[in-house]
Design a protein around this nucleic acid. Structure first.
Length: 488
RNA sequence: GGCUCAUUGGUCAAGCGGUCAAGACGUCGCCCUCUCACGGCGAAAACAGCGGUUCGAUUCCGCUAUGAGCUGCCA
């Protein structure tokens, strides 16, 4: 049977990395087996629906390359692929009623108030935590009562009927077989009073109808999976392979969520991360290959991904390592692609007529995200205020006096220089250094300091002077001489 | 509180009864070097605890501890 996986996001905003990883794994499981990857929009929660969120989903899929084979825009006969449309078509109600006929579900007319009264606070635990277990009140309604309520238009939900005895087991591909007491399971709502199915119910119905073979989701669903199992059994449907992924947590080991405002894919992109690096990084959060390879293209992941190697324990989303990996991608980038990424970030800082590509070249091996660029190149735009003490460097064996000397002696030679290329500048300065018999550092440290005004710079003196051009770099050197003269 | 799951260095992780317990990020040191990077080399750093099972446990079982998730007409 052909492997079919689905990514079923609910359009409630940006995609956080946990969701994205689920999508990635679903995609990889399908592609590894030459199967199909399906996109389904789970918009059953009318209240949380966010305008434009569906576009974000499409955009993210596009950018990450997790291209779906079927979806709202690619109907291959399993549509509609949007749950609100399926709801309108009456799909869920039909199946819910089938369960009612089988006594596996029942109408519930309980009011919010009555449900509220069922709540009890948990003693001994942190403030005000409440739990509800439905008391099956409406299960015992007579046929006549139900008919009457329905006829009277009393709002209702449909609940799953779970017996109080026995146990339910299911097998997960990563966590193994899990068994729970039925008495622990609540009669969950299948159809809400607004007529929409709950996520859980819609999932089971749609996954079956769309012939999904592998259900991948976060392990926060592990606890509710027995309810799914009961649903599948009640319908007489075959269960899919369950693949629950370990949670991705923040540095505090708390679940990463949209609500907590933690990094969404789009946030990361805005911060100067590249999609390939993000994908690569999250693939390795909760999964490891057989080899110790760490840098993977999507294609390589497709080839090597084996869901049997997914981890059980939660993983911390380590921004530091992501940054490193992003840096690796930046370093490995083709020049043209790199410029395309880098130029906007450079233009934010540089307005002067410099060769921006040269500046870009300087920082390619020195940044981890594109946001890092700004503070590394700002001195090109404007010479920062700096102190004379910067000319003193123990290791370089320089101080204010020696620096002043070097700059003074070098200035006329540079003024005469017509070939202001890197090679030309290098030749002039190196000749001087040799003639004077001083160390490279003694000659170059003062120059680099003067033209940049910074302790550290991307590139060396030659490169910087070349980019600044003769006029500007000589101006900066004169300024350095002036400063030093006043100081010495 | 109940249930479920998890526990290898700070972090990601390999390991699937016998290893001096991989590798990566980060940290630190050295080399390269006009600075910062890059690159190269090296170091420190871990099996939560206690009981079993076994000739032998990081690996299997139990208990404890810790953490997390679920316990919604959210997903």
């Amino acid at each position: 049977m052909k492997v079919r996986t689905r990514y079923a996001p609910s359009p409630t905003g940006r995609m956080h990395v946990g969701n994205l990883r689920t999508a990635l794994y679903e995609y990889l499981i399908a592609k590894h087996e030459n199967g199909e990857f399906i996109l389904r929009i789970e918009d059953t929660d009318q209240e949380r629906f966010v305008e434009g969120a569906v576009d974000i989903i499409y955009r993210t899929i596009e950018k990450t390359g997790l291209i779906h084979d079927e979806g709202p825009d690619k109907d291959k006969g399993f549509g509609p692929y949007i749950q609100s449309e399926r709801q309108k078509a009456g799909i869920y109600l039909k199946y819910a009623k089938e369960l009612i006929d089988k006594k596996e579900a029942y109408y519930c007319f309980c009011t919010k108030e009555r449900l509220e009264s069922l709540k009890c606070t948990v003693e001994g635990s942190e403030e005000g935590k409440e739990i509800t277990k439905y008391d099956k009140h409406c299960l015992h309604l007579s046929k006549e009562e139900i008919e009457a309520n329905l006829a009277a238009g009393i709002p209702y939900t449909i609940r799953q009927n779970i017996p109080q005895e026995g146990t339910t087991s299911f097998t997960d591909a990563v966590y193994g077989t899990i068994t729970v007491e039925n008495s622990e399971l609540d009669d969950m709502i299948l159809i809400k009073s607004d007529g929409f199915p709950t996520y859980n119910f819609a999932n089971v119905v749609d996954d079956h109808l769309m012939q999904i073979t592998h259900v991948v989701r976060g392990n926060e669903y592990l606890s509710s999976t027995p309810k799914y199992t009961r649903l599948y059994h009640a319908f007489g449907w075959e269960e899919p392979v369950y693949i629950h992924c370990p949670l991705i947590t923040n540095e505090e080991h708390q679940k990463l969520s949209k609500r907590s405002g933690h990094s969404s894919f789009e946030d990361l992109i805005e911060k100067g991360f590249v999609p390939e690096a993000i994908i690569n990084f999250i693939a390795l959060l909760g999964w490891s290959p057989e080899s110790d390879q760490e840098i993977f293209s999507l294609k390589e992941l497709e080839e090597q991904f084996d869901y049997r190697r997914i981890n059980k324990s939660p993983a911390v989303f380590d921004m530091t390592k992501l940054r490193w990996m992003n840096g690796e991608y930046i370093k490995a980038m083709e020049k043209e692609k790199y410029y395309e990424y880098a130029l906007p970030y450079i233009q934010k800082v540089i307005t002067k007529e410099y060769d921006l590509k040269l500046i870009a070249d300087l920082v390619q091996t020195r940044i981890e995200t594109f946001e890092d660029i700004a503070e590394k190149i700002d001195f090109f735009e404007q010479l920062p205020e700096y102190d004379c003490s910067m000319y003193t460097h123990k290791k370089m064996k320089t101080n204010s006096e020696s620096s002043l000397e070097v700059l003074k002696e070098l200035l006329p030679k540079l003024e005469e220089l017509s070939d202001y290329s890197i090679a030309g500048i290098e030749q002039t300065i190196m000749t001087y250094i040799h003639d004077r018999g001083i160390k490279n550092g003694q000659g170059l440290w003062p120059v680099r300091t003067a033209v940049s005004g910074k302790q550290s710079t991307p590139g060396g003196a030659y490169e910087i002077m070349n980019i600044l051009g003769k006029e500007e770099s000589l101006y900066r050197i004169r300024k350095g001489i002036e400063m030093l003269s006043n100081n010495v």
